[in-house]
Design a binder for these strands. Structure first.
Lengths: 199, 199
DNA sequence: CAGATTAATGAGCGATTGTTCAATTACTTG
DNA sequence: CAAGTAATTGAACAATCGCTCATTAATCTG
């Protein structure tokens, strides 16, 4: 054993998430990363290998937090569909302009749009992740269907895509310089869409 | 009078739209712009002032084309709502992976997400533009309502935001590495949402 | 053709990009 | 305390960034 690391890996990653989520991949320079993580380039590269490596690890943190957030949210509801509906309403509330979020738009979507046609390795990873989420939404909806919450003829995989597109649309819309009530109403309208699929 | 300009301004802008739409603002370097427009830096700066200037003008072209496209589309339908529904279906078809588009996601949304928290002047412009589109959608929906296509209690401004969010969600979803039928189904489902607002 | 005017060129500016590595510092073990 | 080990540092690298400008080339009018 020797000198102990001064930084905490997880808290460094959390700070990286904030920066990357806010500014995106290319607009976060190593200089800004140094400042945000309070680490010098040598340490950053020793710990994470490259800017790509750091970004991918930060993205994984973001994805995990997102997944945990959805899980803990759904756990509060006996009805899965009502859980999703309030999930949309909660996103709208959280994505209010002036809120505490680093960015209102989803980091995965920002990354998807930023890296397509420019940065293949990161684009592939974010594609993988979004596919996994779509898949998971489909499974939860499938469970809702077997709970008799959904009409028996509902195509859950298809509804999962519609739901994911709603979340993407809501959060991207919220990135605009708009006002809170408009975003809240949008979230409410999107929650209402799910009613048409209920039994 | 003196030497005549070798380049055609509009065709240069069209090429700039393709590049910026594809790669975004920061990932389109001057070197790439030189190559895409077949112009040397001196000419580019003489013609457009700066990278920002070129981008803003290219964005304006994109916005105009988008607006014209919607106009000519709606003109083909007696029912405004059916026009919007097929508009969504057409977007889904056009945003099929492997299609001819520079990017499936909307250039305005890509710019919105890329420039928030990083590049204020362009972000302000794209905000203005998206607001104008939302406003226009609202007006057209208002007309649909007075044509008795919509339920009398429909809030058209609110529905305009839902519609815009659908377009954003559809095209951003389509940016993923997914397959055509899934995008087409998504477009169909989004078109179906409008049915619930019809009279 | 001569003179005037304007577009096109491209080498090169200073700043910044992501990254490396030899030197230094701090901690553990014997 | 001395030796060994690992983390930290920051100057410096080559490459690229957006951009400038003195020079050259092309077209007009007289």
């Amino acid at each position: 054993m020797a000198r102990i690391a001064r930084y905490d890996r997880q808290s460094a990653l959390d700070k990286a998430v904030v920066l990357f989520w806010q500014k995106g991949y290319h607009n976060s320079s190593i200089k800004q990363i140094e400042h945000a993580l309070d680490m010098r380039p040598g340490s950053i590269y020793a710990a994470f290998g490259s800017k790509d490596g750091l970004f991918l690890e930060a993205l994984a943190c973001y994805v995990k937090e997102s997944g945990d957030h959805l899980s803990s949210h759904l756990a509060k509801y006996t009805s899965i569909i009502e859980g999703f509906q309030d999930y949309l309403r909660d996103i709208a509330l959280a994505c209010t302009p002036g809120g505490p979020m680093p960015s209102r738009a989803c980091m995965m979507v920002k990354t998807l749009l930023e890296t397509s046609n420019t940065h293949l390795p990161i684009n592939q990873e974010v594609n993988r992740v979004l596919d996994a989420i779509e898949h998971r939404l489909g499974e939860v909806l499938e469970q809702a269907k077997s709970n008799r919450e959904l009409k028996p003829d509902v195509d859950c995989k298809r509804l999962a895509r519609l739901l994911q597109a709603q979340i993407i649309g809501l959060r991207s819309f919220a990135q605009r310089d708009t006002c809170a009530p408009k975003v809240v109403e949008l979230g409410e309208d999107m929650a209402g869409i799910l009613d048409y699929y209920r039994l």
